[in-house]
């Protein structure tokens, strides 16, 4: 009895120790992967920040109005932001890799699915960002163009342009991660007219000079004669 108990105990112990012995290396491997990942991600972050500084990424984004978007949202400089983003993505990937190393079947499936969706999330975020930047840019261009051309309700015009472009970006981003396809389709069909209008405006402002001249001709026939344009400014 005692023997049996001892035997089963030792068997259990040895099984446990076997299990521990077989699980422990995985755990250690996971830890190593996660720690190494952290280090690699940190190095990546530093490298990315260096490179971005080298190519003067901050000044580049300033001119596009991107920086202002970030400063408004109380975020760090775009180069810093991008570097941090790279760090977290890299580290997260290593984290998942580490979990994977544990060899737990169910968990592995979930991780696999996550990796499938990850690029889409990336793209969606990117689309949203670019959309906001473009909307801001054209919104401001419209406002200034309209003001300088003495067009009626410049602010309304500007807001419309901005709204349409952001709406377009949002629908595109949602569609990218595959959420609410129906909603997207509906929103798109509703917004289609508005989008076309926005595109037309954006296009017009793309060829700003031509558009401005057109506007001035349209609205300011009399202005030509007796306004500040009547005499050489130079």
């Amino acid at each position: 009895m005692g023997d049996l108990l001892f035997k089963s105990l030792t068997e259990t112990m040895s099984r446990l120790s076997d299990m521990v012995a077989s699980f422990l290396p995985r755990l250690i491997a996971m830890a190593i992967i996660i720690i190494a990942g952290a280090i690699v991600a940190w190095i990546l972050k530093v490298v990315v920040r260096r490179i971005l500084r080298l190519i003067k990424f901050d000044q580049l984004s300033e001119t596009t109005g991107f920086t202002r978007l970030l400063t408004q949202s109380a975020l760090p400089s775009p180069a810093d932001l991008l570097a941090r983003f790279v760090f977290w993505v890299a580290w997260f990937a290593f984290l998942l890799l580490g979990l994977n190393a544990l060899g737990i079947e169910a968990l592995n499936n979930e991780i696999g699915r996550f990796f499938d969706v990850l690029p889409q999330i990336f793209v969606a975020i990117l689309i949203l960002f670019v959309g906001v930047v473009i909307a801001n840019f054209f919104g401001r261009a419209t406002l200034l163009g309209a003001v300088n051309a003495n067009a009626p309700s410049p602010r309304l015009l500007s807001s419309m342009v901005r709204f349409v472009i952001i709406a377009l970006a949002v629908t595109m981003a949602l569609e990218r991660i595959g959420l609410g396809q129906g909603v997207v389709l509906m929103a798109f069909s509703i917004a289609f007219g508005a989008v076309m209008f926005g595109l037309a405006l954006a296009f017009g402002l793309g060829g700003r000079d031509a558009a401005r001249r057109l506007l001035e001709k349209r609205f300011l026939e009399d202005k030509k004669k007796d306004d500040d344009e009547g005499i050489s400014q130079l």
């Binding site: 401001r140 406002l143 200034l144 003001v147 300088n148 602010r155 500040d228 009547g230 005499i231």
Partner: peptide
């Protein structure tokens, strides 16, 4: 000689400056 429409210019200043005050 050239006639400059000062009043209109001022009007454009007033409306314009207010419209783009955020900028």
């Amino acid at each position: 000689s050239a006639h400059l429409n000062r009043k209109k210019m001022f009007e454009m200043f007033r409306s314009g400056a207010n419209a783009i005050s955020s900028i």
